[in-house]
Simulated scan of single mutants.
Amino acid sequence: MDWNDSRQEFHSSRVLSGADLPKIGRVTKTADGPLPWRVTDFTADAREIDDFLLTLATNDCSPQTIRSYAFDLLRWWRFLAAVGIRWDTARREDVRDLVLWMRQPQQPGSRAYSPTSINHMLSVLFAFYEYHARLGHGPVANPVPGAALGMRRYEHHNPLAPYQPQKRAPYRQQTVTGAPRVLSQDLVTRVFTALTSTRDKALVAMYLATGARASELLGMKARDVDWGNQLIAVVSKGTRAYQWVPTSPDSLTWLRLYLGEMPLKSPEDALWRTVRRPYRPLQYSALRAMLVRVNKALGTGVTLHDFRHTCASRLANDPSIPLTDVQAVLRHKHLTTTSKYIHTNTQDMVQRVLEHHKAPRDSTPPPAWGYDPCDMAELFGPLP
């Protein structure tokens, strides 16, 4: 066989087009200890992953960040198992093949990984190999290309100097910032009608009224509702601060109906629970499964985060609410993050432009400027 033919055959087998990765390992939530999430069920290499995640926990990273990093590392280990190499012998070509695999749909009718997910994966792997390189473990050169790729663009930019164009790093995907996924009122009504339990309707109403993230609402306790002042308290995902957020009367009405069916015994009880015995705190997987059933029935693709986008867009486009108030409700660190929700509704824009084109142009010239005869008579008297 010719050398070029053998290289082509080897490369096509490494990309694993349309193939599922071996189902080894899983991400597990720990009951206690300094590490909230771990990658388990590995026969080897578990210590290297634990050491890296433990460093993140020591640096005060949120549990959700550690969970996200754990899933990316698990995907990398499954890819390494599929191609038959160890993590400490990985090369740049292996990272390239991983990116090519993630860019392809894994199942018929499914979608490939998004550019943002691929870039996040590369950032996680870069940080992982940099950490072990400082300890003298793993490859001599980081298989994720570019030593400066872990930093954000313009991270140390001088505000007095003009911005200089910067190329994307190797293997990083081009991301397009589009408009937020805002649900129309008709779709919101259809989703709300398709919900079968009072608890689910109370949850969706609360998401749409507060713009809270899925994990923030699920972490609420019975004491986190201020009925008189129309507020709820959540632990913010990023800062982990305990913050009060205004909500709507409708959401509190649905919450009262839900608690009437499933009353709580203690202020420390989880607010959102399963509707079947044994009663236990509602998990994200169960909430997502509920929305999957609704999407299947309606033929839609609504996500939980779409409710936050919808709430944010409604608030940001209300002229009576300052944008800084919207920022406070959404708990954004930067106002520029909130400003992306100020947008023109496409349907309204199209309708206005079509009406402009249909309106006949008025060819009558505007009247010339002049003095009012009554004013002239007041000043100079009746003219002869």
Rank of each mutant, 00 (worst) to 15 (best):
A82C: 09
A82S: 06
Q104M: 12
M102G: 03
W87N: 01
A81L: 07
N119E: 05
W101D: 07
L122Q: 06
T89P: 06
F79Q: 03
L80T: 05
L80N: 07
R92C: 12
M121L: 11
L98Q: 05
S117W: 06
L122K: 08
L122M: 07
R91A: 14
V95N: 01
P108N: 00
R111F: 08
A90S: 10
E93S: 15
P115K: 02
A112E: 00
M102A: 08
R111S: 04
R96H: 15
T116N: 12
W87G: 01
V95Q: 01
R91G: 15
T89C: 11
R103C: 12
L100A: 14
W87S: 02
A112R: 06
S114W: 04
L80S: 05
G109N: 01
T116D: 11
V99E: 05
R96L: 13
A90R: 01
L100Q: 13
I85V: 10
L100I: 08
Y113G: 02
L98H: 09
W87Q: 03
W87K: 02
Q106H: 14
R92H: 10
R111I: 04
Q104G: 12
T89D: 10
P115Q: 02
T116C: 12
Q104C: 07
A90P: 00
Q106P: 10
L122W: 07
I118Y: 02
G109V: 03
I118H: 03
P105H: 02
D88S: 13
R91C: 12
P115G: 03
Y113V: 06
W101R: 14
Q107D: 10
G109P: 00
P105A: 00
Q107G: 11
G109T: 03
L100T: 08
Q107M: 11
R91F: 06
V83T: 09
R96P: 10
Q106S: 13
Q106D: 08
R96Y: 13
Y113W: 08
E93D: 15
G109H: 00
S117C: 11
V83K: 01
S110F: 04
R96N: 13
A82K: 07
A82T: 04
L98D: 05
R96Q: 12
R96C: 11
R96E: 14
W87R: 00
A90I: 00
R86N: 13
A82M: 05
F79L: 09
A112T: 00
S110H: 02
F79P: 08
R111M: 09
Q106M: 11
V83H: 00
Q107Y: 12
I85H: 03
Q107V: 12
L122R: 06
R103M: 12
R103H: 07
V83Y: 00
W87I: 03
D88I: 08
T116M: 11
H120S: 13
S114N: 09
P108G: 01
P105V: 00
D97C: 14
R92M: 14
